[in-house]
Simulated assay, not measured.
Amino acid sequence: MTGRQGVILYGPPASGKDTVTAALAELNSQYVQFTRLKVGTGKSAGYRMGTAEQLRELKAAGDVVYANSRYGNTYAIDRPGVDAAFAAGVPVVHLGQVDGIQALVSGYPAQWLVVLLWCPREVTARRSAGRGDGDTAARLAAWDATREDLDAHPDLAWDLTVDTTAASPQDAVRLIDQMLAQRAGAATA
């Protein structure tokens, strides 16, 4: 196992992945959000926009660790992108599918801290509307899919679970940072 550490934040839309990632980066600039490759249209902020041809080339080279389609777009976790994120610090990867977690943990060697961020469906609706999402209905459908995904994997073990309606982002960040420090200490002992 490599000594490189990364964080996977899993949860439904508006569960706090962006907020927790920003708080991590504020705590320590070594935390960097992994920017997924996005092929499609719509929001480009927070993504590396790519083409279908680029995605085909990455797949042909065996460099797509995980890809999924949602909101009419394709989102990919690619090996060169993860390499670059590790070169920049401690990557924080946002995921909304258990298959993505499993693909990343098994397909990219690192010490991954897997964190479940959760909020009720009505909180996703309120947060989505509050941040001006034009596709709140699609976000709620994704919330439903995330709940079904969790229900289909009851044996999945989380390193940390955070109810983002009860814990502040700073509380979540403190726990994440402490857990990574403990793991790093255990690895060097």
Rank of each mutant, 00 (worst) to 15 (best):
T21A: 11
L9V: 06
L140F: 04
T136G: 02
G132F: 01
G72P: 04
L180K: 01
P12R: 13
R36I: 06
A142V: 13
A181C: 05
M1E: 12
A84E: 15
D155Q: 12
N68I: 08
R56Y: 02
A23M: 05
I101V: 14
Q111F: 01
Y10T: 07
Q182M: 14
S44H: 13
Q30R: 14
A110P: 07
A129E: 14
R36Q: 13
N28T: 07
A85R: 10
L113F: 09
Q102G: 01
R126F: 09
R4H: 13
T136P: 01
H94A: 11
K59H: 14
G42W: 14
P13A: 10
W158T: 09
T146D: 05
V82S: 01
D151P: 00
G6W: 07
G107N: 03
K38G: 03
G72L: 11
N68Q: 15
A125M: 13
G16E: 08
F34K: 00
L140P: 03
A110F: 11
E148P: 02
G130F: 08
T136F: 02
D135L: 13
G46D: 03
P120N: 03
T146L: 03
W112K: 08
N28M: 05
L156F: 15
L113R: 14
I176N: 04
A52V: 08
R79P: 09
V98D: 03
K59M: 14
H94S: 11
V123Y: 01
E148I: 03
A84G: 12
S69E: 15
L160K: 05
A14H: 13
T35W: 10
A167L: 09
R56H: 05
D171R: 02
V98P: 00
R127A: 03
A172Q: 00
K38D: 06
Y31S: 12
V82L: 15
N28R: 14
F34A: 00
A88V: 08
G96N: 15
A22P: 04
G134E: 14
A189L: 09
Y71G: 01
A76G: 05
T19Y: 06
V7E: 01
